[in-house]
């Protein structure tokens, strides 16, 4: 019993160390521009850690089953940045760009996911940030018009 606990603790330390090496707490994850406080707000992992985290189990169009996503509500991020606008232009690492109505984030519990099934999302997968809609909780979300707003490898948000 004791040995198991010790092993688990060791494991956790190892995982934390790995995570720290992958992305430091101060490294900028997201950059918000446009109608935000002072015209530009950068968000680091430490900022996200200070917010309330949510979990969503939902099917996606590019994976099987119902992965469990963990992250921060998009509306919380916008509020954190003092965003005032109706549309968010999301941009990904590969320059994928799409406009998302801010309404979405208030109508649904859309999260900026950093974990899928307990594993941190990385740029080699769909991370570090993936916009995830609660697709299985609302029938209307199972639609191409919403699916294309699931931006993976999210890097910047422009509010207008």
């Amino acid at each position: 019993m004791k040995i198991t606990t010790c092993l688990l603790r060791l494991l956790r330390v190892a995982v934390l160390a790995l995570g720290a090496s992958a992305a430091s707490a101060e490294e900028v994850l997201l950059t918000l521009t446009g109608a935000v406080r002072d015209g530009q707000v950068t968000i680091a992992r430490a900022d996200l850690d200070a917010m309330e985290w949510r979990e969503i189990a939902t099917s996606t169009t590019v994976t099987d089953g119902q992965p469990l996503f963990r992250g921060v509500l998009m509306r919380d991020i916008l509020a954190h940045a003092g965003a005032e606008g109706e549309t968010v232009t999301a941009q990904a690492l590969n320059d994928y760009v799409i406009d998302i109505p801010v309404r979405d984030f208030h109508d649904f519990d859309v999260i900026a996911a950093l974990y899928m099934d307990g594993a941190a999302l990385t740029p080699r997968d769909k991370g570090p940030v993936w916009i995830v809609y609660p697709r299985d909780d609302h029938g209307v979300l199972a639609d191409i018009r919403y699916d294309m707003r699931w931006v993976w490898q999210l890097s910047a948000l422009h509010v207008q």
Binding site: T61, V62, T63, D64, G65, L93, N94, T122, P123, R124, D125, K126, W152, Q153
Partner: peptide, 19 residues
């Protein structure tokens, strides 16, 4: 490194269930 990661992510995407 960024380009490398992106390419790996696309190859990973192709290896996901439906694809």
């Amino acid at each position: 490194q960024r380009r490398f990661d992106l390419l790996v992510s696309r190859l990973n995407l192709l290896r996901d269930g439906p694809q």
